[in-house]
């Protein structure tokens, strides 16, 4: 999830010429703990890097949906994975339930590329970054040799949004 945030911020700041900050938080566990990526994208200078009420929230598991679902700003966007059973969401929020984890399994046989699928879905829903910028940022950020797989995952993410 941290890498996904970095890619989004890179796409905006480096390839779309905007400003962006990326901020991360995680627990003491090296693997398996909750992790969160916060990305701010702006035409202006970004000072305060933390987000209390996001315009867009992507929750990839139930824990994230439960913890942050109600924080989304009015008229904001909330994208939850279809594996989440119940999702707390306000009426004023545009809500999407998309099979991001399932798609990752279809593409890579594991949930490893879920973050990239989610980026595609997020960009398709919001248009906050261009598809080209995101493709460049993915190719530049993922481990060498996995570019094609990840770009495929990105395309599939875009495809999740009709």
């Amino acid at each position: 999830m941290v890498l996904g945030g970095i890619i989004l911020a890179t796409a905006a700041a480096v390839y779309d010429g905007l400003n962006a900050t990326h901020n991360q938080s995680y627990g003491p566990e090296a693997r398996g703990g909750a992790s969160r990526s916060e990305v701010i994208i702006s035409r202006g200078v970004i000072h305060y890097p933390e987000i209390e009420h996001p315009d867009v929230l992507v929750a990839l598991n139930q824990e994230a949906a439960d913890k942050f679902g109600l924080n989304v700003r009015d008229n904001g966007i909330f994208i939850a994975d279809s594996r989440c059973k119940s999702v707390p969401s306000k009426n004023s929020v545009r809500f999407y339930r998309l099979p991001m984890v399932d798609t990752a399994y279809e593409v890579a046989g594991s949930e490893l590329v879920t973050n990239i699928v989610a980026l595609g879905a997020l960009a398709a829903v919001t248009g906050v970054v261009s598809r080209e910028a995101l493709q460049k940022a993915v190719a530049a950020s993922v481990p060498r040799g996995t570019e094609d797989l990840n770009l495929k995952a990105l395309d599939r993410g875009f495809g999740l949004v009709k």
């Binding site: 970095i6 911020a9 700041a13 480096v14 400003n19 962006a20 900050t21 990326h22 901020n23 991360q24 970004i46 890097p49």
Partner: peptide, 9 residues
């Protein structure tokens, strides 16, 4: 910890 971990252009 904020300044050390934040990413910016």
């Amino acid at each position: 910890a904020i300044v050390g971990h934040i990413r910016e252009k």
